[in-house]
């Protein structure tokens, strides 16, 4: 998985260089660039949500994007888009879980097993993200971009607690240990790379300003493969909207 991510990353960088090279050779520049600023929200969630989660409450966290866009137009309707974005994403969630495999580290003791009770988590991370999208503009006002993104984690925090329940040690027939409130911090298990699908809809207002909505959906888990604290893979799914200013 990680190798694939790196390949994608490098490929995208190369593409960007090619675009620059072409820019220098072209009389009427098909190359456009600008800055993007956006806010939004989303979640890191297992898809589909397992039936071992019976209740879930989710608290949005303000997500922020600051980016630089680079666009190469093949013709009036099609093009390629890349750039570099700093994305801060996050969420808080509380879930009621039923016999869900989990792991908690309490005073350096690892407790793993099947937990029934409540689980609260806070997750936030900052990524340096590189999108590579194909553009389609049905008319001069609208443009739709679809493609992939590859992101590098700059910072990440994932903590929470299991509470008001019990854990069956190791497996569902193991000793039943009641849990009042046991916090955990799994920040170190946030995966350093994240990649996925990114689609963007942009509405132009004049030659410089545009408004956009962007949805990114990760295809690899937010957490490292080695992370056993959750039975399920969690995927970053975030929607942001904002403005572009073309230079």
């Amino acid at each position: 998985m990680m190798r694939k991510t790196i390949v994608l990353f490098v490929a995208t960088l190369l593409t960007a260089n090619v675009l620059r090279a072409q820019d220098a050779d072209t009389a009427v520049s098909p190359l456009q660039h600008g800055f993007a600023l956006g806010i939004g929200t989303g979640a890191s969630a297992p898809i589909p949500i397992p039936n071992r989660i019976s209740e879930m409450s989710w608290t949005p966290r303000l997500c922020v994007l600051v980016g630089y866009d680079l666009r190469y137009q093949f013709g009036p309707k099609t093009g390629l888009k890349t750039g570099l974005q700093v994305k801060y994403v996050g969420m808080s969630a509380e879930a009621k879980v039923y016999q869900m495999f989990t792991q908690a580290i309490v005073d350096e003791s690892e407790v793993s097993g099947y937990f029934t009770g409540y689980n609260e988590t806070v997750l936030h991370a900052t990524y340096l993200s590189l999108p590579l999208q194909f553009s389609f503009s049905p008319n001069s006002n609208w443009r739709f971009d679809a493609g992939l993104f590859a992101a590098l984690k700059i910072q990440g925090h994932f903590s929470g607690a299991v509470k008001n329940g019990y854990i069956r040690i190791t497996d569902p027939t193991g000793e039943k240990v009641e849990v009042g409130y046991e916090p955990f911090d799994f920040s170190e298990f946030i995966a350093p790379f994240n990649y996925g699908i990114e689609i963007t809809a942009t509405r132009s207002f004049g030659s410089r300003w545009a408004a956009w909505f962007d949805l990114s959906w990760a295809l690899n888990s937010t957490f490292k493969e080695a992370f056993r604290g959750l039975e399920y893979k969690m995927y970053n799914i975030y929607g942001l909207f904002g403005v572009d200013y073309r230079l």
Binding site: A43, I49, S54, R168, I237
Partner: peptide
């Protein structure tokens, strides 16, 4: 998407 499957049936007991 995130909320979609919250109404699933309670899974069979493992205990």
């Amino acid at each position: 998407l995130a909320m979609a499957s919250c109404s699933k049936e309670k899974p069979a007991n493992m205990e």
